[in-house]
Amino acid sequence: MEAGIVGLPNVGKSTLFNALTSAGIASENYPFCTIEPNVGAVPVPDPRLETIQSFIKTQKVIPAILQLVDIAGIVRGASEGEGLGNQFLTHIRNVDAILHVVRCFDDPDIIHVEGSVDPIRDIETIDTELMLADLQSVEQQIHKAQKNARTGDKDAKRKVEILQECHDRLAAGTPVRGLVYDDPASAKILRELQLLTSKSVLYIANVEEDDLLGEGELVKRVRERAAAEQGEVVAVCARLEAELSELDEADRAEMLESVGLTEPALASLARAAYKLLGLQSYFTAGEKEVRAWTIPVGATAPQAAGVIHTDFEKGFIRCETYSVDDLVALHTEKAIREAGKMRVEGKAYVMRDGDVCHFLFN
């Protein structure tokens, strides 16, 4: 699962990406790798890992990982080939959600491509380019779908209907992400269209150091916009986060305290992005490692086991699980078992966020 970072040029997008992927919010035990120049793996901070390790001593603590793609800056006219044009479209189509960086600071030394700072105008510029690109895609796909529908193919007929609904929304200047189908077949068709504006969006308000909590007027306007879309906003000072990412743990803690923060804003950003993608974590704990595993919300126990190894899913027998709260209350797995808190779950069990699991398999 990937999230793509988008935004106009000079909004702090690349600074933010570099700070996130520097692994500055991770401890030395966190695995980190840069996959390509514009793709990075980011640890998702989770205090439950430290809680588990305080009771089950292990050699390593391994967090969940979020994959980010730094997409080239989008400019007005990009859907018509301006700037990097189709290159950014391809990258956005391949991600599962969008992190939209919006400039909410004024700095005469950093020129804004539009000549002034206006976050709502900037959001609308990006949305317009994505909608225009989607409109082109829908118009291209609808002719082929109509041809297939004439043969009596029911799926093709439904696809034509969905494409027409998408076309009507886009032509009216409305993103596709507000279009939701309850029946799985229609939802699958919409998903397979890979429309840019169908993806969930998290707004990242890039603020100045004197507005770290995002209480300024520019951020308020972004929050109002996000609320109207049932979206969320995370305020981040990319410049400060870049500095924090280069410090060792002691200096980082001192700097955070000096600016009134308890953790880097990138930590809350990583968690918000993880949630946006519809992901959750479960844990395994043993002598070698305590580890968070990433699964979609709604995953069953066999599917969760398959994340560790495909053979675990194929040969799944049952799952023994308990909560982190059980561990805090009773201190050991032995005590959890004796207290009857160790649950035995079968193939139909739907995983809960924060389950601590042992899988039994053939």
Rank of each mutant, 00 (worst) to 15 (best):
V117R: 08
D118R: 08
H91A: 13
L193V: 02
A348K: 15
T128C: 11
E28Y: 12
L240R: 04
Q164A: 12
A227E: 15
L195P: 06
E2T: 12
Q53T: 13
V138L: 14
G214M: 05
A267Y: 03
V176S: 01
M255K: 11
L130A: 02
G40M: 07
K275F: 07
G4H: 09
A226C: 10
V222F: 09
E28D: 12
N94H: 09
R48K: 15
E208P: 08
A270R: 11
S137C: 13
L130D: 00
C104Q: 05
T90E: 14
V328T: 11
P37S: 02
A3H: 05
G115S: 11
S200M: 10
I189D: 05
Y282L: 07
L89G: 00
A339N: 08
N29R: 14
I25E: 01
M131L: 05
L360W: 14
V176A: 03
E289I: 06
G178Y: 13
L89T: 04
R352G: 01
F55R: 10
M131G: 02
L8E: 02
Q140W: 10
T58D: 04
A26Q: 07
A227T: 13
R291F: 13
E215T: 13
D210K: 15
D355R: 00
E320I: 01
G24W: 02
G216Q: 03
L266R: 01
G12F: 04
S281L: 02
I62W: 13
A41C: 10
L360E: 11
Q194P: 08
V344H: 11
E215G: 12
Y349G: 09
A23R: 07
E257R: 14
R121Q: 12
Y349S: 08
L135Q: 11
T174A: 05
A329T: 04
E249F: 06
G278M: 03
G315Q: 07
E289A: 06
D182S: 14
D109R: 14
D325R: 11
P108K: 11
I204K: 02
I92E: 00
A149K: 03
F17C: 03
D211G: 05
V344L: 14
V290L: 02
I204S: 00
C319W: 00
L130S: 00
S323N: 09
K199D: 01
E36V: 06
E241N: 05
P175H: 02
P47W: 10
A235Y: 07
L84I: 15
F55G: 01
E124Q: 08
D155C: 06
R291A: 00
H167G: 10
E129S: 06
E333V: 06
L218F: 13
A187Q: 12
G81K: 10
V61H: 01
V356Y: 10
S258V: 10
